[in-house]
Simulated assay, not measured.
Amino acid sequence: MNDQVSFGYEEVAPDEKTRRVGAVFSNVAKKYDIMNDAMSGGMHRLWKDRFVKRVKPQPGEAILDMAGGTGDIAFRMAAAGASVTVSDINQDMLDVGVERAMERGIDGLVWSCQNAEELSFSSRTFDAYTIAFGIRNVTRIDHALAEAHRVLKFGGRFYCLEFSATEWPGFKEVYDVYSHKLVPRIGQAIAGDADSYRYLIESIRRFPSMPAFEGMIRNAGFVNTRVEPILGGLVAIHSGWKV
């Protein structure tokens, strides 16, 4: 049995990946949102708006925003009146999120340091589970999907926003050059850290294809799964229901 997992283009032991991913996000936490703007030209904000529109958060319902770190998704859902628990394995990312919430005067969010593969929440607790640009950094994705299914109520919905591989001819080649050559340089210039952003780009390349990931979501027990590609699949919204 192969007990190694991918860390970018490397194969490492699971515990080593967890440690190294933690170090990556501790390193980039303070500059994470600035870098998102720089790398996507601000488009990540539109993707997140579209994602939350698909989730349709409702007043009073309980939502778990996993890998929610700096609060981008949670702030949007809380504005709709949902009761949001923001969870992340990295306390440095959560600290940035708490600080941002205080600056914006956003109250009522619950902040909880959690490993997506081993959540401490009781089964059938949440109406919805969201994870944006976080699932590819999980050491064992199948474990995280199983936990997402467990903590959702019957009738609960799962939504994931994640990078994938664009299927648009021409754009794919341009993006490959941009991401591999320029993103690490942008990371060095803005965050003083080229290596962390090199890993983040490599992790996108190692992530399963849209059909393969949809299959993993179904294997975790979700039904009525759907994939909504954005920019030809550069980014995709995955969804499923627990019945």
Rank of each mutant, 00 (worst) to 15 (best):
A128K: 15
A67Q: 04
V177Y: 08
G170E: 07
E11S: 12
G41C: 08
A189E: 09
K242G: 05
I237F: 10
G155N: 09
E214G: 03
A101G: 04
S203D: 10
P59K: 12
G134N: 01
G22Y: 00
D107H: 04
V138I: 15
D92G: 12
D176Q: 14
G60P: 10
G170Y: 10
V177Q: 10
N115E: 14
P184R: 00
P14T: 09
G42R: 02
E11K: 15
V98I: 15
D176H: 15
R185V: 05
M66A: 12
S164C: 07
S122C: 04
G192S: 12
S26H: 00
M93E: 00
T85R: 12
Q114I: 01
H143Q: 12
T225I: 15
V227Q: 11
I135D: 07
D195P: 08
E16V: 04
T125L: 00
G192E: 00
K31C: 01
E147F: 06
P14Q: 02
A13K: 06
F171G: 09
T125Q: 06
K30S: 13
E118I: 00
Q188V: 05
M102H: 11
G221H: 09
D49G: 13
A13V: 09
P169Q: 11
V84A: 12
A79N: 01
T130K: 05
L46G: 04
V183M: 04
F158R: 07
F207K: 09
N115I: 06
L161M: 14
F7W: 02
Q114K: 10
D33W: 02
M77K: 04
D176Y: 13
A82V: 11
D65P: 08
R185S: 09
S26R: 11
D193K: 07
G68S: 07
A144F: 05
S40K: 00
P59C: 12
D88S: 11
G221Y: 11
G134C: 11
R198I: 05
R19T: 13
D72N: 05
V227E: 06
S209D: 06
V223R: 13
V138F: 14
Y32Q: 01
G71Q: 03
G22M: 03
W47Q: 03
D33E: 11
S123L: 07
E61K: 08
P14H: 04
P169T: 14
D37W: 01
V235D: 00
M102F: 08
K172A: 15
Y9C: 08
D37I: 12
R226P: 02
P208F: 02
K153Q: 13
